[in-house]
Nucleic acid binder design. Sequence first.
DNA 1: TATTTTTTTTAGATTTGTCTAAATTTTAAA
DNA 2: TTTAAAATTTAGACAAATCTAAAAAAAATA
Lengths: 225, 225
Amino acid sequence: MPYTTAEENYLKAIWKLESEGLHASTNAISERLKTRPASVTDMLKKLTEKKLLHYQSHRGVQLTSEGKKISLAIVRRHRLWESFLVEKLQFPWHEVHDIAEELEHISNPSLIERLDRYLGQPKTDPHGDPIPDKEGIIKEQRQIPLSTLPANQPARIAAVSDRNSDLLELLTHKKIQIGTELKVLKRFSFDGSAEIQLKGRTQKITVSAQLSDSIFVKTENHADN
Amino acid sequence: MPYTTAEENYLKAIWKLESEGLHASTNAISERLKTRPASVTDMLKKLTEKKLLHYQSHRGVQLTSEGKKISLAIVRRHRLWESFLVEKLQFPWHEVHDIAEELEHISNPSLIERLDRYLGQPKTDPHGDPIPDKEGIIKEQRQIPLSTLPANQPARIAAVSDRNSDLLELLTHKKIQIGTELKVLKRFSFDGSAEIQLKGRTQKITVSAQLSDSIFVKTENHADN
DNA sequence: TATTTTTTTTAGATTTGTCTAAATTTTAAA
DNA sequence: TTTAAAATTTAGACAAATCTAAAAAAAATA
């Protein structure tokens, strides 16, 4: 029942791939975890024996329902700790991801329950990502990357990738944060960049294709959440 | 510069032995860490190569000044987290040691600095043990075990061993805590037990020899601290 | 001091998680 | 559809941290 840090990291990486709608292939996992594909194959076999994955050689993997449950518990811990670091310890949001990567592996249940209560049972982390509840139920986000937002449709930033500290620094610098309202004025197919208008700013700003892929927005009209 | 969890555990165990005035022998370390003596020998060699220990075969070890510095940083982290768990998350004090054993290995310096500030730069942890400062300076305690306190000398509980959760549970149950004032009324050489009087209680209570060894007191007269 | 007991170390094995290099399988391209 | 490229797996090695069993050294006892 207690999983190693390595096992947990694999489970979380696979969960993230799945939740992004991607196929959890050996290479994709190896990129995310910065290990060699051969190492991934070994671990996939191990996790399959523990009934956490469905795996067939050369065919990638999916989480079993047990695997999903465990992954969601890890994600919950990660996001609660991120919330703690930002709200209580006043860390700038772009510094918290790496620390939370370490804290998330401490799995004492009453620690997490108390932390959750202490934070006031937050629904999302500082990046806007939803925090799974104790039972592993997570509010699915109806979010789209900024890169697919139609021009002139008002939207609000709901989440940003928390994987890249440089990204977070850039956003902080430009004072772009969760909740910022915006719309796309014009998109340039030459390089995928876009001109966007941030609500309450006079100057419009230009965002690159990479940046548009890393910012996720909710459109205002359909009332999810 | 980054040490493994195993290495840190050895350093801390050795530091504790030294700070209790004991000889850090292979067997003593192996008992504290619940590993076999052969494993200890291996690790002592490794830490010696890293210049954290002075070690001569069959002669036990001492920490080098670098080793001491690292140990104190670990102890600082441990005790700060214990404070957090009790003061902020409202854990009963006897549950925090094991969790802090995990948290202490996360060594991000700005995390610890912020945690310290958040807690109001506490001087002691919930068990009464002093917290080393950022530079590794620790306030030496002039404390004696209750078992050596002369009869009828008033004293105040300054610390208890945090290693044993059963002990802490017992103390909590009997409402004995840091700061509790007491004196020994009578000691029985038959079994080392003692009758003690707690200030503000009508009933005197009996403590076993083991318990007297695990409670550390300061006498009121000499103004240390 | 000689002998026994205890402590410590050595030697060799095991587990976990990783790696490289080579072989195999799948996918894409010609 | 054959071939080339890419992805994946196998085979074998390695480092870290542990173990058991046996040997050696130190300490205690007779």
